[in-house]
Design a protein around this nucleic acid. Sequence first.
DNA 1: TTAAACTTTCAATATTTTTTGAAAGTTTAA
DNA 2: TTAAACTTTCAAAAAATATTGAAAGTTTAA
Lengths: 167, 167
Amino acid sequence: MDYNEAKNKFISTWGSLGTLWGINKAMAQIHALLLVSPDPLSMEDIMEQLQISRGNASMNLRQLMDWGIVFKENKMGERKEYFTSEKDVQELARQIAKERSRRELQPTIKILKDVSNIKEDGTAKTRELIKQTKALHEMADTLDIMMNKVIGQDHNWITKALVKLIK
Amino acid sequence: MDYNEAKNKFISTWGSLGTLWGINKAMAQIHALLLVSPDPLSMEDIMEQLQISRGNASMNLRQLMDWGIVFKENKMGERKEYFTSEKDVQELARQIAKERSRRELQPTIKILKDVSNIKEDGTAKTRELIKQTKALHEMADTLDIMMNKVIGQDHNWITKALVKLIK
DNA sequence: TTAAACTTTCAATATTTTTTGAAAGTTTAA
DNA sequence: TTAAACTTTCAAAAAATATTGAAAGTTTAA
């Protein structure tokens, strides 16, 4: 496997993985491309390498910046904007964990809390709804605490967490 | 909020969360419905409560069974099939972790391994591709080990893991 | 056997999501 | 200012995905 084959394999794998996780293909592929590019890339570079339109590139780069994992960079004397990815994979994971907690986990926790607080009326179905949503709420809360713990950790958290879990 | 309102809120929240994670709405909603139903439901029940077609119900129930989180049940003297969900949320999480590891993490690890093993040719771009895919490979490996650790754990793993991480 | 009661399959349709590309917007150099 | 160099926006088109429903398949009771 040569460089180009390997790079394309990585980019397309990352793209389909993204899809599986609710992230669109272009967004995941742009991220993969930036992650392995030694230098910042312009929008043109990205459009050309991934064969996507300007609009597509622009919108997905924006989303990646909203996620806090891609940054704009300016080269001196050039008007064009360049883009780079967060290169430290553990920092990347922390940032994604942080955003997913904020965007998904926390709103879900709120709804589970509301639903599990309806008043008990003695019927089996109400009892079951309360019981299951309470259990999910507890689990989601624990996960959120774990994730926030990890977010506040230093760069080697993953190894440390592993060591602790194995003990 | 009364029972019906709460139940619908839970089912629709679970449905849209599912979508966000690459799981289709009907599948996530069927799962939510079974999770809070005190008794097994027939396909008719599910079709009626979620207003979906027979084909849709049948296909998504099958997928949920493939994930190992929904089971068929037979009532004595009845020909119709009934369905229940795994009710223990920690067991549910373990089962999902197990399947995602098998279906996604492991294949990805394999590709990262292949890509990161291309031969160094002295160029910056090759060096960067190898470096980044190696880092991802290492992280994915660690995550897989952590997940498998969790999968082999008893039902209170989540609390225990939390305690360890906080220490 | 047969036929009723049920489930599965799958081609067609509908829905949702993504992508395009050109117009509008912005910034900067002259 | 103006116009060139660039980016963003967004309506329309394309692509991907989910859903339907009826025909085919299966199982069981009689």
